[in-house]
Amino acid sequence: MKGIIILIAIILFIIVITIIYQNKFVTLHERVKNAWSQIDVQLQKRMDLIPNITETVKGYAVHERETLDAVISARNRYINAMGTEEKMKINGEISGLLGRLMAVSESYPDLKANINFLELQKQLKEIEDKIGFARQFYNDTVTSYNQAVKMLPGSIFAGIFNFKEETLFKAEEGAKETPKVKF
C-alpha cells in the first residue's frame, strides 16, 4: 500500500512539473512572438513612410532613380515576405538603402530645406529609434526563451513539447558600414 502511494505521488509530481514547464514554454514563446510583433509594427510604419520619402526625393533627385527603385523594390519584398527570418533579412537591406537615400539628400540643398522632406526624415528617425528599442527587447526576450529551451531540466521538456530555439535579430552584412554615395 505504501508503495502505491509513493508511486502515485511520483506520478503526480511528474505531471505537475510537466504542466509547469509546458506553461513556462508557452508563456516564453508567446513573449517572443509579441516582441517580434512589436518590431513588425514599427517596420510596417517604416514601410508606409517609404513611398512618401521616395516621392519627395524623386522630385529633386531625378538621377538617383536606381536608389529609389531599390528602396521601393525592397519595401515590396518585405510586404510579401513570409516568416521572421526573411523579414529580418530584407529589413537589413532596407536599412542600408534608407541610409543611402538619406545620404543622397545631403547633395540637394533644396530637398534638405523642403518642409515635407524634413518632417518625413524626422518621422523616419523616430521610427528607426523605436525599431532599435524593439529589436533590443526582442533579442532580450529570445535570449530568455532560448536559455529556458537549452538549460536542464527545461531542455528535456522543450524537446518533449517541440519547443525550438528562436533566431536573434542580427545586423546584416555591411549594415555597420557607412553608406557610399556615388555621383
Score class of each variant (00 low, 15 high):
residue 5 I to N: 04
residue 5 I to L: 07
residue 5 I to S: 06
residue 9 A to T: 15
residue 9 A to P: 07
residue 15 I to R: 13
residue 16 V to C: 08
residue 16 V to Y: 07
residue 17 I to R: 01
residue 20 I to K: 12
residue 20 I to V: 15
residue 21 Y to W: 04
residue 22 Q to V: 06
residue 25 F to R: 02
residue 30 E to W: 02
residue 31 R to F: 12
residue 31 R to Y: 09
residue 31 R to S: 13
residue 31 R to E: 13
residue 31 R to N: 10
residue 32 V to K: 02
residue 32 V to N: 05
residue 32 V to L: 03
residue 32 V to C: 04
residue 32 V to A: 08
residue 33 K to D: 11
residue 33 K to M: 12
residue 34 N to L: 09
residue 36 W to M: 06
residue 37 S to T: 12
residue 40 D to A: 06
residue 45 K to Y: 12
residue 45 K to D: 14
residue 47 M to A: 14
residue 48 D to M: 08
residue 51 P to A: 04
residue 51 P to N: 08
residue 52 N to T: 15
residue 53 I to V: 14
residue 57 V to I: 15
residue 58 K to G: 07
residue 59 G to Q: 11
residue 62 V to H: 09
residue 65 R to H: 07
residue 66 E to A: 07
residue 68 L to D: 09
residue 70 A to L: 14
residue 71 V to T: 11
residue 75 R to C: 05
residue 78 Y to R: 08
residue 80 N to K: 14
residue 80 N to M: 10
residue 80 N to T: 15
residue 82 M to V: 15
residue 83 G to R: 00
residue 86 E to T: 13
residue 88 M to K: 13
residue 89 K to F: 09
residue 89 K to P: 03
residue 90 I to Y: 06
residue 90 I to G: 01
residue 90 I to F: 14
residue 92 G to R: 03
residue 93 E to W: 00
residue 97 L to K: 03
residue 97 L to P: 10
residue 98 L to V: 05
residue 100 R to K: 14
residue 104 V to K: 08
residue 104 V to H: 12
residue 109 P to T: 09
residue 113 A to I: 15
residue 114 N to P: 14
residue 115 I to N: 09
residue 115 I to P: 15
residue 116 N to P: 08
residue 118 L to A: 13
residue 119 E to H: 13
residue 120 L to C: 03
residue 121 Q to K: 10
residue 122 K to N: 15
residue 125 K to S: 09
residue 125 K to D: 06
residue 127 I to H: 01
residue 129 D to K: 05
residue 129 D to C: 07
residue 130 K to L: 11
residue 131 I to C: 05
residue 131 I to S: 05
residue 133 F to D: 12
residue 136 Q to M: 09
residue 136 Q to C: 07
residue 137 F to A: 11
residue 138 Y to G: 03
residue 147 Q to E: 13
residue 147 Q to I: 15
residue 148 A to N: 06
residue 151 M to V: 13
residue 153 P to C: 01
residue 153 P to F: 02
residue 154 G to S: 02
residue 157 F to D: 02
residue 157 F to T: 06
residue 159 G to Q: 09
residue 160 I to W: 07
residue 161 F to R: 04
residue 162 N to H: 10
residue 164 K to W: 02
residue 165 E to K: 14
residue 166 E to I: 02
residue 168 L to Q: 03
residue 169 F to P: 07
residue 170 K to P: 11
residue 170 K to M: 10
residue 175 A to P: 00
residue 176 K to Y: 06
residue 178 T to R: 01
residue 179 P to R: 04
residue 179 P to M: 11
residue 180 K to I: 09
residue 182 K to S: 11
residue 183 F to N: 08
